[in-house]
């Protein structure tokens, strides 16, 4: 039985595409309001999990439970979830405002307030000044914010992110990380975030799920993964890689300090 504050429970998930088994025996849960990162190298099955969760892919076996209800066979739009893709997937022919407003206008209950909600969402991601522009006139970071606003507009209680910052430069990623956390706090949304970047996962997540080759190696808080890596793979892929980054950065920190001193 899942805990009272458990939002999603995934049981014995299995995905076979053609003759290849992509995922097998996948079990995990996500707490309400949690920020869970799924961390692993390319091709390890992270995106497949996301597509099953949102309903874009039928699992070969297993169940997806949300708020105690089996949603394994529910349509993507009936799951109360939203998704943000790496490539933004914005409607290029529409303005920023129309991108956010479009789905709302098709919803009878929200049609009347669609403009108001869309503007509010654009304000939340700091893009109200760009409402009338076409997406192609925005930077990558701004386009990703539009995609987030569009998802938030339908008020989902879970948002899935499929490597949303992979195509962005370092500066924009740092800013967007903070904004995403702030949005999560403001809207209380559960977020499941896919990344292959260890640093990103550790900077943002309440818990991290480390995966490789269709198998979950460990799900735990960032601190516990560092302290007690479940196996050699986690130690190598997560702890060792992070250590390398820290080492290289610490070398330069002394250079920076020396540089500052000489400047003075």
């Amino acid at each position: 039985m899942e805990n009272q504050n458990t939002k999603i429970v995934v049981n014995d998930l299995k995905v076979v595409l053609g003759r290849k088994t992509i995922l097998e025996n996948i079990n995990f849960d996500v707490k309400d309001g949690e920020f869970l990162s799924i961390l692993g190298p390319s091709g390890c099955g992270k995106t497949t999990i996301l597509r099953v969760l949102i309903g874009l892919l039928n699992p070969t076996g297993g169940t997806v439970i949300k708020d105690g209800v089996d949603i394994t066979k529910a349509a993507p739009s009936k799951r109360g979830m939203g998704i943000v893709f790496q490539n933004y997937a914005l409607f290029e022919n529409m303005t920023v405002l129309k991108n956010v407003e479009y789905a709302l206008r098709l919803d009878k209950n929200r049609k009347a307030q669609s403009r108001e909600i869309a503007m509010e969402m654009l304000k939340a991601v700091g893009l109200e000044a760009h409402a009338k522009k076409k997406p192609s006139r925005l930077s990558g970071g701004q386009q990703q914010r539009v995609a987030i606003a569009r998802t938030l507009a339908l008020n989902p209680d879970v948002i899935l992110f499929d490597e949303p910052m992979s195509a962005l430069d370092v500066d924009t990623r740092m800013i967007l990380r903070d904004e995403l956390k702030a949005l999560q706090k403001r809207f209380g949304t559960t977020m499941i975030y896919i990344t292959h970047d260890q640093e990103e996962a550790f900077a943002m997540s309440d818990r991290i799920m480390v995966m490789d080759n269709g198998v979950i190696h460990q799900i735990d808080t960032p601190e516990n993964i560092i302290k007690n890596p479940a196996n050699d793979y986690v130690r190598r892929f997560v702890v060792h890689n992070l250590q390398l980054k820290i080492d290289s950065l610490s070398r330069f920190s002394t250079v920076c300090v020396k540089g500052d001193e000489s400047a003075q």
């Binding site: 309903g55 349509a75 789905a103």
Partner: peptide
């Protein structure tokens, strides 16, 4: 895919 999740 986005359309499917947004009920479009």
């Amino acid at each position: 895919d986005v359309g499917a999740t947004l009920n479009i």
